[in-house]
Write a protein that binds this DNA or RNA. Structure first.
Lengths: 161, 161
DNA sequence: CTAGGACTTCGAGCGCACTCGAACGCAAAC
DNA sequence: GTTTGCGTTCGAGTGCGCTCGAAGTCCTAG
């Protein structure tokens, strides 16, 4: 795990507090807390906890455009970083690459596509909610099974998993 | 979506009630509500909401052994179905195939491996919990973004996603 | 008797999302 | 001046989890 990656810090912030996710944490996550000046590929990779290989791959398939410095090296400006933060979070929540490509293509087309983008986001929200419900159920089932193992260490019936 | 699959019904049950997941729902999910007699591959596929192809694949890689009837067709007895219910739920919660193979191999080795299986379950529980936290954060971020789109339909600044 | 449909085995193919390796460039450190 | 190290491009390879197709078998209905 990278030392300074965003997700880790946001999650750590959540450990401290309880109840609904506070706006500042989201803000920190969404805005990449005011990225100052251009970053190298290694810095962005560390920030997003992914490999430089993956960042080049994302650029290759058209998720971001990245400028080059005098030496031909990638130079990620604030906009590029913000975009990648968005990509990383959406990927983490299970959005497929093609949907992400679609969304970002729309974003590049300007404000006319806002309604369509909103639809995509609403759909994605529902997907996340469904995942949350399924995971909650899986967690309950796993804990149930743990309880049957941990509750008593006696013999079990044949065929048990 | 299959009409009678387990997960759908468990999720539907959860819609009705609120608060912590009740034991009966878990029981229904874990025990496949008292499977009576042997089932065909099509019936199991429908129950688990997966294709016959996938069931054959699971058997091929050693996740289950399945008996054949007089005509050479697969005949899933209650134990096989229970095992597959377990497999399906673990897969849904993101457990990798190799971990599942490992776990089931241990289960086949008998009661001596209960402690090791317990360890695997505890580890998996932590994985699910981490996923839940990350998803919750992703949901909050997505809803935040939806709010910025839905809140006002005015022009946005350049480079916005 | 024949046609349909659900099943069987086997191996090959696929889509996704990376991940890697090779060969090279450039710039600072020793 | 050469070594170290971080970067570059390009294409190919990997691992996962299915998914499919071909060719054949078996039972049932018409």
């Amino acid at each position: 795990m990278a030392t300074g990656d965003l997700m880790s810090r946001a999650l750590a912030a959540l450990e401290e507090i309880d109840g609904p996710v506070p706006v500042e944490v989201i803000h920190g996550l969404v805005d990449a807390e005011a990225v100052t000046g251009p970053m190298t590929i290694a810095q962005v990779a560390d920030l997003l906890d992914m490999s430089p290989h993956t960042l080049r791959y994302y650029e290759r398939i058209g998720l971001v455009e990245v400028a080059r410095d005098a030496g031909g090296h990638r130079s990620y400006d604030a906009a590029a970083v913000r975009r990648l933060v968005f990509v990383a979070r959406m990927r983490l929540s299970g959005m497929a690459m093609r949907d992400l490509q679609h969304y970002l293509r729309l974003a590049d087309e300007g404000d006319d596509t806002v309604p369509e983008r909103l639809d995509l986001l609403l759909e994605h929200r529902d997907t996340i909610r469904r995942q949350l419900r399924e995971l909650t159920l899986s967690l309950a089932a796993t804990e149930y099974k743990i309880a049957t193992y941990g509750g008593h260490t006696g013999p079990s019936s044949a065929g048990e998993t």
